[in-house]
Design a protein around this nucleic acid. Structure first.
Lengths: 271, 271
DNA sequence: CAAATAGTGTCTCTAAGACAATATCAC
DNA sequence: GTGATATTGTCTTAGAGACACTATTTG
């Protein structure tokens, strides 16, 4: 009877065909754009990071940042590493979206992808700066369902406009998947990944979990509310938002002054 | 300038080392055990399917059913296929738990696993029967947190008792991961996978989403309530459960009779 | 009738939504 | 003062939890 040691030394996995495994990341950021009126608060826009593909396949189209899993890392570490390589920012954490493994999804061969959402603060992006000539760019994103049940995904950066139409797949256990019905400018199945990633993000923003990472350490409650409203695309009465978020934040004794209106108290995340 | 076709024909993924990919499935079932008293309703027990490992590594220990992903299928299809192979039952659907990819998690080499929960009705298991001599068996499962924050996982089938102690890992975005601190009888990192799978199942049972698949097409509201209570390990007042579940079920005009007490109306899942 | 489950009605309490009112600053 | 945001108070309403009560069957 052979020992385990003996068994393992003879063991070989090479009989099986193996897929390449990538981690793709939907990195979200919220940019605030100052207005003409000095006393008005800035408008927020939800942005997602895309990379222009330099080579085939899908040459010159836009794709999510991602890369091949290495044997020395977990797949979450791989996702964090990819984001860091593209942005020079290391997100504090990521959340899983799903595994995409439909045969034929990548013309290069058998490649499956585990997708993640990561949240990046505008503050940290501004600190490291962003190479305008880089093939990585932040696109404004909008994603909504029309009356017929079709989902519209629209991405834009300067003159570039990408868009896709998606249908909701049979959904069970609170999860939603999407099938691409029309695709303009996005590589691979990335339109479906982005749709699902944004759905995941919206779900987490609902319970005040994913909204803090968009902001600096100290923030005003109005800024926090704007973050949630930008992600969810719905608005709440300030009084109610404050009451509902009160359990997740802590007061500081600092204020934001010089805005042309009543100063706002700064808060930090509780714990 | 080379065309995409030309590029792909020359393209080779073989330069990269590739992992083996498996789908592991935590298949849950609820067994109802008749009592001595003819008019009492049956007691429910949550069960999970485990396979006794016949070969190294972890020989004679118990593991989740699972198998290697093939290039012709999605990983969800792979998970369903594995459950079908072990039980002869095809679950209606599965839900994702997470990707387990920590280097060294499998002594055979670089193997990452995507884990799923599947729900199997007692009815369908009884129909196909179960080979008692098979290495696949349904274990009773209990999983709870003690006062110090340690999680206890206990599995039993006849004389066999498996158990593990787990600690909650840093958790973000509503997700909980587990680290194994003590392990008795379970192969690989499967104690952590089971812990996370049960957490996912409990979350879905909360919103009346994962509870119907445990029961036949037609069921009594009390049976449905017992399913939820068995999974969540908490009890609800019948009046309140009925009110809360009323939006998810539809009356039939059939009744269960001959139980020694008032007959119960049968319901079906709405839609 | 006794034992057991099935099913209904309603009080309370809490949390979310709506709305009104006040506070404070920069120009 | 004006225009903007910041902040608080309170009325209403929907839903969850607790509890009391009635209904129906079989041995």
């Amino acid at each position: 009877m052979d020992s385990e040691k003996e068994f393992l030394s003879n063991y070989s996995l090479s009989d099986y065909e193996r897929p390449s495994v990538t981690a793709d990341v939907a990195a979200f950021m919220i940019s605030s754009e100052g207005s003409d009126n000095y006393r008005k608060n800035p408008e927020n826009k939800l942005q997602i990071l895309l990379i222009r593909r330099g080579g085939h396949p899908y040459k010159d189209m836009w794709a999510l940042p991602g890369g091949f899993l290495q044997s020395s890392e977990t797949i979450e570490e791989c996702a964090l590493r990819e984001i860091h390589e593209e942005t020079n920012v290391m997100p504090s954490s990521i959340m899983p979206v799903g595994v995409f493994s439909k045969p034929g999804r990548d013309p290069r061969g058998w490649i499956i992808s585990s997708a993640y959402v990561s949240i990046i603060s505008e503050e940290s992006v501004k600190q490291v700066g962003m190479d305008d000539a880089s093939d990585a760019q932040w696109f404004s994103i909008s994603f909504d369902r029309d009356d017929e049940g079709t989902y519209h995904l629209d991405l834009s950066y300067e003159d570039i406009r990408l868009n896709a139409l998606l249908a909701e797949e049979k959904t069970r256990f609170g999860r939603t998947e999407f099938r691409i019905t029309e695709n303009g400018g996005l590589a691979f199945d990335h339109a479906a990944i982005i749709a699902m990633a944004l759905t995941v993000l919206r779900n987490e923003a609902k319970n005040y979990d994913a909204i803090f990472d968009f902001l600096p350490e100290k923030f005003t409650l109005t800024a926090l509310q704007k973050v949630q409203e930008t992600i969810m695309n719905v608005s709440v009465l300030p009084a109610n938002f404050r009451r509902m978020v009160s359990g997740y934040v802590e007061e500081t004794d600092e204020y934001v002054r010089g805005e042309g209106h009543r100063p706002a108290k700064l808060y930090t995340r509780k714990r």
